[in-house]
Write a protein that binds this DNA or RNA. Structure first.
Lengths: 357, 357
DNA sequence: AACCGTCGAGAAAACGCTATCTGGACGCGG
DNA sequence: CCGCGTCCAGATAGCGTTTTCTCGACGGTT
């Protein structure tokens, strides 16, 4: 029975109306739970829908009213933190009439513009986006067109809502932890300049700033060491390796997030060092961080909660709220085995082989 | 300038037509690269589109023709293998007029039905799905409605294409590797029965079958030990811990995929054992497997390639191909530190503490 | 010079739904 | 008994595209 393609979703609202012996408008009202339908009619229509296996065409709906679709734009599915946002969002939507669709930002095309546009083109009822770098002006225009919630963007437009982690608090916790352990030579590994400068709305920029601030406050200004590298695991690994083999080898490295920290850990091992030689800390608390072989000290920023909050704010806005809301999620330091007190001077084991297991 | 919401994407094909001084039909032809437009007109229309910032409404398109949208249904974004499929699919689509949208399968609702339906409701031009458990009959109906490519489904319907990994070959490689190392007590950790039985179309079912087959062929039938557990990390951890503390403690555990293997590794550590006591192998070769602290022996099944192939097959089908195609991706064993020869009898270190670093 | 085929362009009819408006029935108070 | 408000249901006009059909103009061939 292959080949011939039936006119997809061929049963229309008209068919249902005929079957139930009512008008199209009546059916429409029933499926939207709109005002003005008698219980009797509702019942007959529901039965007809059931019987015919009718499914409303979202395209047709989109031409007049709501599509009951929420769109979320995600920059990098490979970073396990983002799927956690999705988990949160999906569960928040479970049982609601809304469906979530995800548009992955094509890394080849700059910063999610295209993906967000794709969502708007599809007439989603609301947009959640995680591209903190898009220009404010464009974002305002977008927000004037469709309800928007931005994740991880530290500004406070009146046009859209935001859900952010308190990156300053989180970074403060990590840094204080490292300093209390006795570290002085603490390096920070982060993205290229272009991605961390713009007006401090990006989480990484805040973490960098806070790193600098805490170092200064602790009298370690002269120990500040910032390494910048592209996002790819290979690039991070290379940069970390270089840092570790340099003259100014730090005793601790604070990576801008866990994905990066994993690359740093690999470099530490490849340099013949262990966590006793170089402490490593990250940010996000991705699932793998608790693995005994990884055991990464990090900051939990509860991605599920952020995803859930984003959906709630968005649904609220769709329902009509216009005053902006800005949710801040509190981060929590999670101390694990990857951070240790620095070795006392002179007992370096620079050439020790990595012993696994 | 908040509040007032402009009629989203308010510039229509009509506006463009007026601006360019042509008919709507002409504009439509230009944006679809259809036959019958003079270079002069094409130019004028293109300019008008540019000038007005016109974007076609996908909803409206969906009512008549193509939406240039491909839908992919993914069961579990938290498992890093699936994002790799998406990476492959996204790159394969880069530069094409098609946009990918992802529908996450809500774990609360059975097996992706709902997510796939959501895609079809949105009039996608084609569907890629990763829910091997949906019933064949339903799938045939679906495939008669819209082009479909199934990922990881080991059957050969004529209605849809498939892209699978050669799970039998991959499992064979792992098992032979373990046996060659000298292991005899090799356990297999997999899903609950319901998910591995149905007609062997599911990868996990094939891996289980092959595990049994290889064990028998190696004369180890009496050593077969299959542990079943729900998917969650916690459940896997619990099951593995129980297996490790039982009387029949295996010297090697082959987990049905890497995510599971990670949970097993955690259990091994929590039981005070190391990879010298119990070897662990997985399947997928997710990125973290190469981390020095994880160092998981596994089978690479090249998710990027599978994603890419799926998109190519789908585009082909959309272009008109009707004969089914079934692509098989060859797996590769990747040996790392998590598999070692079994300890000689009597030198068990059951109670040794886990030394990290 | 008449004719035919080709090609570029436009007119107009769907596509399936929602929103708005109108109409009719019914019940209640004056 | 009339009028008025209330509530339920249907008629109807789009929504922004694509598609099919028609029309006219233009060359080239008899």
């Amino acid at each position: 029975m292959p080949a011939s393609r039936t006119p997809a979703g061929s049963v229309t609202i008209q068919d249902v109306a005929r079957e139930a012996g009512v008008s199209r408008a009546a059916v429409s009202k029933v499926i939207r739970n709109a005002y003005g339908v008698s219980p009797a009619m509702r019942e007959r229509v529901t039965a007809a829908i059931e019987q015919l296996g009718y499914r409303p065409s979202v395209s047709a709906r989109g031409m007049r009213g709501a599509t009951f679709t929420l769109g979320i734009e995600i920059p990098d599915l490979a970073n396990p933190f983002f799927p956690r946002l999705l988990t949160g969002a999906t569960t928040a939507l479970s049982g609601s009439p809304y469906q979530l669709i995800i548009a992955p930002a094509d890394p080849a095309h700059s910063e999610g513009h295209r993906a967000i546009q794709a969502l708007v083109d599809r007439k989603v009822d609301g947009v959640i986006a995680v591209s903190p770098l898009v220009e404010p002006a464009w974002l305002e225009t977008l927000a004037a067109t469709v309800p928007v919630v931005m994740l991880g963007r530290h500004d406070r437009s009146t046009g859209y809502d935001t859900v952010v982690n308190d990156d300053e608090a989180g970074t403060g916790q990590v840094m204080r932890h490292l300093i209390e352990l006795g570290h002085r030579d603490i390096a920070h590994l982060t993205y290229e300049e272009e991605k961390t400068v713009p007006g401090s709305v990006v989480p990484q920029a805040i973490r960098l700033e806070t790193y600098r601030k805490v170092m200064k406050e602790a009298g370690l200004a002269s120990h500040i060491q910032v390494v910048r590298t592209p996002m790819s695991e290979a690039a991070v690994h290379r940069a970390a390796l270089q840092l570790l083999s340099g003259l100014e080898r730090p005793t601790a490295i604070f990576a801008c997030h866990d994905e990066t920290a994993l690359g740093v850990q690999r470099a530490v091992a490849d340099a013949g060092l262990t966590s006793a030689d170089v402490s490593v800390a990250g940010y996000d608390d991705i699932e793998i961080a608790r693995h005994p072989g990884v055991s990464l000290t990090t900051v939990n920023q509860d991605g599920e909660r952020m995803g859930r909050l984003a959906v709630e704010l968005l649904l609220d806005r769709i329902k009509g709220r216009t005053e902006p809301r800005h949710e801040i999620v509190r981060p929590d330091l999670v101390v694990r085995g990857s951070t240790r007190p620095p070795r006392p001077r002179g007992s370096s084991t620079r050439l020790r082989a990595l012993g696994e297991g």
